[in-house]
Design a protein around this nucleic acid. Structure first.
Lengths: 218, 218
DNA sequence: CCTACCGATCGGTAGG
DNA sequence: CCTACCGATCGGTAGG
């Protein structure tokens, strides 16, 4: 459920009791409530969209009162941005882990298989609402925020290029590398719209199908 | 700009001076103002999203006052639905025209090329905002509306199946037919997110790249 | 189609 | 973090 393996949020460290006849000090523990807001926001934004979700909805889902989210986040927009940034950091971390250091590995086809599989998991895995929100609520962001996130996206997508280039050089991929990357990622991203973990094929079957669709067999 | 090649917009043909101290009865003739609202709504919904567009925005864009759209449409939601329905009817009509009667034609690869090309034109052509709205504002619809539109979508997508089946039988398509259709349409639909008519490749180049990506050469 | 206008919702804030 | 609250916006309507 925790989608932040990478960056530890620099949460105010010490900070004592701050007297509150409700709630035991232990409960405050912080980072805790902020995280609850992030998760609730991600889930609701994915389910109902950014505009379709009120900050009151999010507060309720996190067990707070209507004004409280603004204690943790400057604005609703900042909350959306935090969800997206967390999603991208998580996606990048998983990608690095799945691919390992060597790029492209000896077997480029296997490398692409891993890239596709980890992408599906990030998009379709249970509780992974952060990246879908990133993909489908792009419009709500400000110019500056969009630019910063674009850098993370470039970082994520750039990993695909050498793999596709190797496949292209080897004759397994026919279309131009750049357009291939855009079309392939589009095909994968769109699965969010139709894939149903309970009915459709499994993520593994999906990965196999994608691989067979994009590459000619060796 | 007009996305309705089928149902000819019954634009008042003669219409003189259009002198308007208030509006001559002849001008009312309707269909005209309604169409203006549809076009304005499609453009704004695509640009700013459904929630991000107020009915006042649409009214202004169509040269009306804030309450006037509700003379033509029962609700903002009905306006969205009308945009989507028009988009789907337009898409289906163009598809039929491009493919002709025979399905699949002798050359299945050529059939797929036409399907892809017409799909790109419907999505990316100048002034074609109706179908992108359909794709990306799906969530704002009611259950019943969604069901009706789903039928049109099935009708549109079902044309792809025999073509893909023929290619699969012929060995040019390796992945399962149904998953192939879903993945291919996803790749195409996602181009709305990144394609720039002024910078990126042309629609023709895009079509070629897609064909090479999905099919092994003959 | 225009002129008012209403009721509800929403993001956000002061002050504790 | 909660309590109360504000100002703005928005979909929609009556009545012409």
């Amino acid at each position: 459920m925790d989608i932040l393996p990478v960056e530890t949020a620099p949460d105010e460290a010490p900070k004592r009791a701050r007297g509150r006849p409700r709630k035991t000090p232990d409960e405050r523990d912080d980072g805790n409530r902020r995280q609850a807001l992030l998760s609730a926001a991600a889930r609701l934004f994915r389910l109902q969209g950014f505009d379709g979700t009120s900050t009151r909805d999010i507060a309720t889902a996190a067990g707070m009162q209507s004004g409280s989210p603004f204690y943790h986040f400057k604005s609703k927009d900042a909350l959306l941005y935090a969800v997206m940034e967390a999603g991208m950091h998580s996606a990048i971390a998983r990608q690095v882990q799945a691919i390992g250091g060597a790029l492209p590995p000896a077997d480029a086809r296997e490398a692409l298989r891993r890239l596709i599989q980890v992408h599906f998991e990030v998009l379709l895995g249970p509780g992974n609402d952060f990246v879908p929100v990133m993909l489908y609520e792009h419009r709500a962001l400000s110019q500056a925020e969009r630019a910063t996130l674009a850098q993370l996206q470039v970082r994520y997508e750039s990993v695909w290029t050498p793999v596709l280039q190797a496949l292209h050089d080897g004759g397994q991929l026919q279309a131009p590398v750049k357009l291939s990357r855009l079309l392939i990622l589009g095909a994968l991203n769109w699965t969010v719209q139709w894939f149903d973990r309970n009915k459709e094929a499994s993520v593994d079957e999906l990965t196999d199908a994608a691989l067979r669709l994009f590459l000619r067999s060796t």
